[in-house]
């Protein structure tokens, strides 16, 4: 059974008026985010993804269209109601945006303080959250005394303080090193699982999507190019924008010009077990070497996605056997000429 929808975006549009004319930041955006999803929105810089996430909590007012949150059209709310609604939508940022003159604990208490929660209750909640994000010993530290990853943990705790239903992450890991990124991503996944909070992630890194998202929308030049489950998008990217993100090195295929005169074969992995050494198995079975010209595969939840381009031996019989072997493993194999890509 499909889970219920928590955020629904209908025909959303955002136009910025500038001196040099109107800029259409978002056009014709339709999205459905379900309860408990970790929903990724990915796009290149300038595609409009930051504007899109700000339209969800109405930090940016959409020019047209609706944002329905938990059954209520929030695009038409009065200021006071809007502020109340925002308490059920936490947000974390690339630059953390912590209050620099307040301790970690005071930062986490801050959203509760502005919501008028009793000080003692707020402190107890902060303690609980510091524990959840693994920073119990840093309650009295100021942001300047924390590392980037720790700052983002405080920011996550702060976003969680008012018990939100959704957490919006605007490039939350883009300012962090890869190791810290992973730990923040697993913290988000943890929170999603433990607390059932829906997570919306804006990013330009496919890695982030791969690691924790279950659904993804690809935004390209102001509109949604494609959306669906992460596996679907990896398996069969339908649009140019999606292919560019899934295989960012795709253009390297053209670099093997002279070799490509001969017949080459593209093996497409679309969810086979990544534990099975297919190519090595083929080589051992047929007792002939192959030349791998290009490989870009990813491991998602134990399944392999991606493609490998190989040059098979000139001996037609051996080549035939190899193709047979690959097809017997349920792989799609197709001949490519000149790496048209």
């Amino acid at each position: 059974m499909e889970k219920e929808i928590i955020i629904q975006i209908q025909d959303l549009e955002k136009t910025f008026r500038t001196k040099s004319g109107d800029v259409h930041a978002l056009r014709d955006i339709n999205l459905e985010i379900r309860k408990g999803d970790i929903f990724g929105i990915i796009g290149m810089s300038g595609a409009g993804k930051s504007t899109l996430v700000r339209c969800i909590n109405l930090l940016e007012k959409p020019t047209a269209g609706k944002v329905i949150f938990d059954g209520i059209d929030i695009s038409g709310l009065e200021d006071a109601e809007l502020r109340k609604m925002r308490r059920s939508m936490g947000m974390i940022f690339q630059q953390f945006n912590l209050l620099m003159q307040k301790t970690a604990e005071e930062n986490i208490c801050f959203p509760l303080e502005i919501a008028g929660v009793d000080k003692r209750k707020a402190k107890a909640r902060a303690k609980e959250l510091l524990e959840l994000v693994g920073l119990s010993d840093r309650a009295k530290s100021y942001p300047s005394q924390l590392s980037g990853g720790q700052k983002q943990r405080v920011a996550i705790a702060r976003a969680l303080a008012p018990n939100p239903k959704v957490i919006l992450c605007d490039e939350a890991t883009s300012a962090l090193d890869p190791v810290t990124t992973n730990s923040i991503l697993s913290l988000l996944k943890d929170i999603n699982r433990k607390l059932g909070v829906t997570v919306v992630i804006i990013t330009h890194e496919m890695d982030v999507i791969e690691k924790i998202c279950n659904r993804v929308a690809i935004i390209d030049s102001s509109h949604i190019a494609e959306s669906g489950s992460v596996e679907e998008i990896f398996f069969k990217p339908q649009t140019e924008a999606a292919r560019r993100l899934v295989y960012p090195e795709g253009d390297q295929l053209t670099q093997f010009g002279p070799v490509a005169e001969q017949a080459c074969w593209r093996i497409v992995f679309d969810g086979n077990s990544s534990f099975e050494p297919v190519i090595a198995g083929m080589v051992l079975e047929c007792k002939a070497p192959v030349n791998i010209l290009f490989a870009d595969t990813k491991n998602i939840d134990g399944k392999a996605f991606g493609q490998i381009v190989v040059q098979l031996p000139e001996d037609v019989d051996i080549a035939e056997r190899m193709l047979k072997y690959l097809r017997s493993k349920n792989l799609t194999v197709e001949e490519v000429r000149g790496y048209a890509g």
Binding site: N57, L59, K84, R86, M91, Q95, N97, I114, R158
Partner: peptide, 14 residues
């Protein structure tokens, strides 16, 4: 930093 003000707005501060 404008981001801090934005963060406060995202929390529903008046």
């Amino acid at each position: 930093d404008k981001g801090i003000i934005e963060a406060a707005q995202s929390m529903g501060a008046s």
